[in-house]
Design a protein around this nucleic acid. Structure first.
Lengths: 118, 118
DNA sequence: GCAATAACGGTCAAAAAGGATAGTATAAAT
DNA sequence: ATTTATACTATCCTTTTTGACCGTTATTGC
């Protein structure tokens, strides 16, 4: 019997070597947690999200929203059949299981920024 | 007065548009949380970390350890003057403020992997 | 009739992250 | 004398992520 861990963690076809890397594989990257943070307490339309995140490009926002949707964390609801579209994004039940995690990520960021501001 | 948030979050010369992105800027990427996870309860030598993370390359492990050290999350202690070196890595007090976050990241990964395994 | 609007998608390019492989210094073990 | 071990570093290369910029559709307001 070996002492080195061999356990594998799998989600939607991807395999990770550690439970922590699985989580980071899903919410990692520059923008995903920011999107989830803004959706914590409210449903938002595409342009509302854009205004909450002024420095993200439209393309990147689209890509990240699609990835989050494919992983089942957010839900995309379309309310009009023809342009201009009305589309709303919100957390799914599965996405809501991330709420404590997103909260603690946000809180730690606030504390650190406070501590090192001046 | 605008309603869109203009607050900025700064840490070690980098500015982030959101508290969540500050945190992710520090612990994001494929390997940092895995390293921190393995250092949660123990001090480890370089090769011990490697054995805990069999799929990371030496170069990447080095780079990530250095980045974590520069951000003040881990401490590097050298015990010998000449090769073969003995080097130990451990969490700093600042790094320990991440413990609840790392724990919840790990836990969420375990739950998700369990839920979707068969 | 013309501009504005919503929510994108496409193309191209740059930047960041990560991997493969080999090499270094020194000492202890064989 | 040669191998083994430690903790890296140096190149080089590939993959992934992100950004810049423009185009699209159909409706409403002027």
């Amino acid at each position: 019997m070996k002492t080195t861990e061999e356990k594998k963690y799998t989600f939607r076809g991807n395999t990770y070597p550690c439970c922590a890397s699985l989580t980071m594989g899903i919410i990692g990257g520059k923008w995903k947690t920011v999107i989830l943070y803004h959706l914590m307490n409210e449903t938002l339309r595409y342009n509302e999200l854009r205004k909450s995140m002024p420095t993200v490009t439209e393309r990147t926002l689209s890509l990240q929203l699609k990835a989050l949707e494919e992983d089942g964390l957010i839900e995309r609801k379309v309310f009009t059949a023809k342009p201009p579209l009305k589309v709303e994004y919100s957390l799914t039940e599965f996405g809501k299981t991330l709420l404590p995690l997103i909260q603690i990520i946000a809180d730690w960021g606030v504390v650190v920024a406070d501590k090192y501001s001046k």
